[in-house]
């Protein structure tokens, strides 16, 4: 930004944050050394969301950080995000990018029975209608959700950060990776290749959403440290049952590593009573559980680096395989 002519057309990063995850927003802001913009997101007493904009974003490159979570507030946060996007649109921002580490409604991505809503598609449409021009998210439940958008979607992976964690914080000598369901086999196989470890697979028969019935283990885990890897832990029914199954088969200890630690409903009770040695999640959503076994991986460097690269028009693909250093 030297010289007047460039300053006239200067196009800076503006970081905006909703109320869903102020800590993550602060971490990203700190990492980029860019302060969060002065916006106020409030709720009127009639429960409508109100957004106040306190600085000019005309012709700026706007990044709005809002994750999808909250047993009571997930829809409030989504509306906050939509109104923030709309606000920037009406305030003549040059480009609006939504940073949604945990994409809300990602699991409602298919018409699994008659007349079921494909809410993930609806959310994609709503974001675009509001004026979003670019989306950054992390470990989408199904990467096909990218196809629901007509705008670019940057689906980042937590895997590089997870790899780093496994390498530094766990004993690799006697470890084995475990996928808690067939859907996650690909993810686990990739990690197993990178770490040069064996992997096992648990096959579950699901009868109802959020309920798991029977589990079948494929592979030998006797006297091994099992690392269960999954994209999210919600009610933790799967995780706890998988842990029990592994211990029944002679595993030494079980560590669970998930990207999105949502921990809703009875998750706290289940985890408290479980035999998991550790449960590791990233900070794509705030973790509210007060349990000693929970450990967190900070993925804000990845998101911050993605913002920097997007702004400068550099390739993102480096981040698919590398975690920016701490």
């Amino acid at each position: 930004m030297n010289g007047d002519s460039e300053e006239m057309t200067s196009n800076n990063i503006k970081l905006l944050a909703g109320n869903s995850h102020p800590e993550l927003a602060e971490l990203i802001s700190k990492r980029l050394s860019i302060p969060l913009s002065k916006v106020g997101v409030y709720q009127y007493s009639n429960k409508e969301t109100s957004v106040t904009i306190g600085e000019s974003i005309r012709d700026e490159d706007v990044y709005i950080i809002q994750t999808g979570f909250g047993e009571q507030e997930i829809n409030d946060f989504l509306m906050e995000l939509l109104i923030l996007i709309h606000a920037c649109k009406t305030a003549s921002a040059r480009r609006i990018t939504a940073i949604v580490p945990n994409f809300p409604y990602a699991r409602q991505d298919k018409k699994d029975k008659s007349r079921a809503p494909i809410t993930a598609k609806l959310v994609a449409n709503l974001l675009q209608t509001a004026g979003c021009e670019n989306v950054v998210t992390m470990d989408l439940h199904a990467s096909q959700i990218q196809g629901f958008f007509r705008i670019p979607v940057n689906n980042l992976y937590a895997e590089p950060s997870v790899l780093h964690y496994i390498r530094t914080k766990t004993d690799l000598d006697n470890a084995i990776l475990v996928s808690p369901d067939a859907g996650g086999a690909k993810r686990v196989a990739y990690l197993a290749d990178k770490l040069d470890l064996n992997f096992a697979l648990i096959h579950k028969e699901r009868q109802k959403a959020n309920e798991v019935s029977k589990m079948v283990l494929v592979g030998d885990v006797t006297n091994k440290t099992c690392l269960i890897v999954d994209d999210m832990a919600d009610t933790c029914g799967t995780l706890v049952k998988a842990c029990d199954t592994l211990l029944e088969h002679g595993a030494k200890e079980v560590i669970a590593i998930v990207t999105h630690g949502i921990f809703s409903g009875s998750a706290k009770e289940k985890l408290k009573n479980s035999k998991l040695a550790r449960i590791v999640c990233t900070n794509t959503v705030p973790v509210e559980l007060d349990l000693p076994i929970i450990d967190q991986i900070d993925i804000s460097p990845t998101l911050a680096e993605a913002i920097r690269r997007l702004h400068n028009g550099e390739s993102i693909s480096y981040l698919f395989t590398h975690a920016p250093s701490e």
Binding site: E23, V287, E288, D295
Partner: peptide, 16 residues
């Protein structure tokens, strides 16, 4: 809600 209050980010959070 005190997101992240019990996480390993605790010290970092309070620093921020």
């Amino acid at each position: 809600r005190r997101p992240g209050a019990d996480s390993s980010f605790k010290s970092l959070n309070s620093a921020i």
